[in-house]
Design a protein around this nucleic acid. Structure first.
Lengths: 217, 217
DNA sequence: ACAAATCTGTTGTACATACAACGAAACGAG
DNA sequence: CTCGTTTCGTTGTATGTACAACAGATTTGT
């Protein structure tokens, strides 16, 4: 159990919850750990979902299948991260997406009802869990709003400037966690077109950059 | 108080909460009602925010001010609707946006801490309130994800088809709540370009439409 | 019924981007 | 070091879109 806690303690869901508190929580939450092989399905589109999962080892992919048969990778969940919370919180009873292990993985499942309803033994930290869950979903909300603001810009230059404005937290110098391909995907632009635009912005004296290090001028 | 309940009972926050339940809740939540004149500021960017508001009469606008001075209307909140819940849930202590009454309005304020922490008198419906709040924020999350999927499409036709796919709930025939200008703003496209594309899609036999009524072929 | 205002569809032009193809630089493994 | 792989930047072309300007249709007010 200590090993489990060491992995998930970094997750915002357990913020301000120590190991001793976690121990007492653990029993209220009807957790179970399950292992999956590479490419094995964890959730199929249409499955009932009354749980949230946290990746303990390995990683999983959230996949959406369109009506015309092809698939689209929506997100990749790494060790320590959570998935399924949005659907569970929204009372979506059947999953609209498929979840697949991208490598050999082990997943910790929580019964969602047990998370949000204060337990009979009313452990103190159950309330904190609810509060943290609310915070996680709301933060994701803010993040999505940022992305929408970026995507709504008319051209690549404005998209980049808007992205930089969120990325620099105060400072005019900052590094970006994405490589060019990932950044282009994030702002929904063509990679080469974005590279060309970055060059022009540097030429125009708007920015300076080297690899993933950027400076606003 | 009955008048207040009649306005807010449609809000998802009070789903499955009847009038008698609401009455007992009302005292736990330290509500207060405040009136605002047209154009009067309700929240200024930078203000502390430890509350959520529900519009009882009138309407308010959420406004974002960019660093270069100009403003951007993010959302319009009508009677019965809620605002501020995302920031409150995300523990954002100071508002990044300004809220202004777009007409003479009255607003019901709740202390956010009182909503999420189960009260001493442990009224039964307090838990439902928390659950509803989680549901609201998570649903907004799903909605934003839909919008992101639309905005990520490469051209107007794909944006529209993606939008229609979400709009038709099963049926190939449906009406759209937006007019052309609003729809174009939603998918971040030029109105006239979108009109032209709609024409082409009809000509190509993809859709049929008349005003706000659409049919997928 | 009329005028004014709003909403909708059309067209041509200028501009921005996607796409493909390529070369250079950076990185890693043997 | 060398080869293969990945990442990054550049260019030309084809395509899509914004913009502006306008005309027809619809709605609103009087």
């Amino acid at each position: 159990m200590k090993e489990i806690f060491d992995i998930i303690k970094g997750n915002m869901l357990f913020e301000n919850i120590g190991y001793t508190d976690f121990s007492s929580l653990y029993s209220c939450l009807s957790c179970r750990v399950q292992k999956f092989e590479k490419k094995e399905a964890i959730v199929l589109a249409g499955d009932a979902i009354d749980f949230v999962g946290i990746v303990l080892e390995g990683s999983v992919q959230i996949i959406k299948e369109t009506m015309d048969g092809d698939t689209m990778m929506i997100a990749e969940i790494l060790a320590g991260e959570m998935f399924g919370e949005t659907f569970a919180c929204a009372s979506i009873s059947h999953s609209p997406v498929t979840v697949v292990a991208s490598e050999k993985s082990s997943i910790l499942f929580f019964d969602f009802r047990k998370i949000i309803s204060v337990c009979k033994s009313s452990c103190v930290f159950h309330n904190r869990l609810i509060e943290n869950m609310l915070k996680i979903v709301a933060r994701k909300n803010l993040f999505l709003n940022q992305k929408i603001e970026i995507l709504s810009k008319k051209n690549i230059r404005e998209k980049l400037l808007c992205f930089f404005e969120y990325e620099r937290k105060g400072s005019p110098k900052f590094t970006v966690a994405y490589n060019r391909e990932e950044l282009a995907a994030y702002i929904a632009a063509d990679r080469s077109a974005m590279c060309a635009e970055l060059s022009r912005m540097q030429r125009d004296g708007l920015i300076k950059y080297h690899k993933n290090f950027f400076e606003l001028l």
